[in-house]
């Protein structure tokens, strides 16, 4: 019964959150391939939104549209509107560099730079000029590592190379690195797919904590993970957004037969 109450609390809490990203009729083309077809999604602040679906369904592609990472691919073309706090992120005046400072990203495979742990975390603040001096930078690094639940493990070896950490630690380092630029939205592209179960649990716990400050969007392969960490879930299939709603509703009472098939394991 307690669980049920909790669930309701969460649901109610979600409804109060303000809108962070509004995607409206987004289409993505890779050359001649129509990868994303007319997707509408509203992403709320201080909420974890999960994108699920079989592989190749376009969920990662859509995620990469949200901070314009697709710009780095020559043949990729995006149409439709994506508004961040009411501002169109594909507006010609918008500099993707500035956008990405607000919309951070964590990748599938842990990709720490071949530099020290400290330099990894301070990289973002440095390029964006977030610290006025060394002590402020130190503070940002410490705070980010704490938020990524890594501080206690690495505080004595901040100058050690980031590539020397274990897989789970590396991924948390990458989260700390993304958090350090004080983003408003954090995009995570299958952040646990390369991790073992224990590290996965740690990262999932972390995601739940990050929800207090950020809007988190996570792409995941694992339905269990989506159920565990998210409040909102979007189900993608063949480039279309099939269903979007509260996580509890999607998993317990899917409206679309395709969603149901996926959840029950018939497609995917």
């Amino acid at each position: 019964m307690d669980d049920m109450n909790d669930m309701r609390l969460v649901e109610r809490a979600v409804d109060d959150k303000e809108l962070k990203i509004a995607a409206d009729g987004v289409d993505v083309f890779y050359g001649d391939t129509h990868a994303i077809k007319a997707v509408d999604v509203n992403i709320l602040d201080k909420t974890v939104t999960a994108f699920i679906g079989p592989s190749g369904c376009g969920k990662s592609t859509f995620l990469r549209c949200l901070n314009r990472m697709n710009d780095t691919i020559d043949v990729c073309r995006v149409t439709g509107n994506i508004l961040l706090d009411g501002e169109d992120i594909y507006h010609p005046k918008v500099d993707p560099v500035q956008l990405r400072a607000k919309v951070g990203m964590v990748f599938q495979k842990p990709n720490p730079f071949p530099k020290s742990i400290y330099d990894n975390v301070s990289y973002g603040p440095r390029i964006h000029g977030l610290a006025r001096n060394k002590s402020e930078l130190d503070e940002i690094v410490e705070k980010s590592l704490r938020r990524a639940a890594l501080w206690d493990e690495v505080k004595d070896r901040l100058t050690a190379p980031g590539t020397g950490l274990s897989g789970g630690q590396q991924q948390r380092l990458c989260i700390a690195r993304a958090v350090a630029t004080s983003p408003e939205v954090l995009l995570m592209d299958e952040p646990c797919s390369a991790l073992d179960p224990i590290a996965t649990a740690q990262v999932e716990e972390l995601i739940d904590e990050l929800r207090e400050r950020f809007s988190v969007v996570i792409v995941t392969h694992s339905m269990q993970q989506a159920a565990r960490v998210s409040q909102k879930t979007a189900f993608f299939h063949l480039g279309e957004l099939v269903e979007f709603g509260d996580t509890s509703q999607i998993f317990t009472n899917p409206k679309d037969p395709r969603t149901e098939s996926y959840i029950t394991g018939r497609i995917g």
Partner: peptide, 12 residues
């Protein structure tokens, strides 16, 4: 910690 002032995306 210094929080960057809220800024519009349109203003570089």
């Amino acid at each position: 910690t210094p929080v960057p002032p809220k800024s519009s995306l349109y203003a570089t």
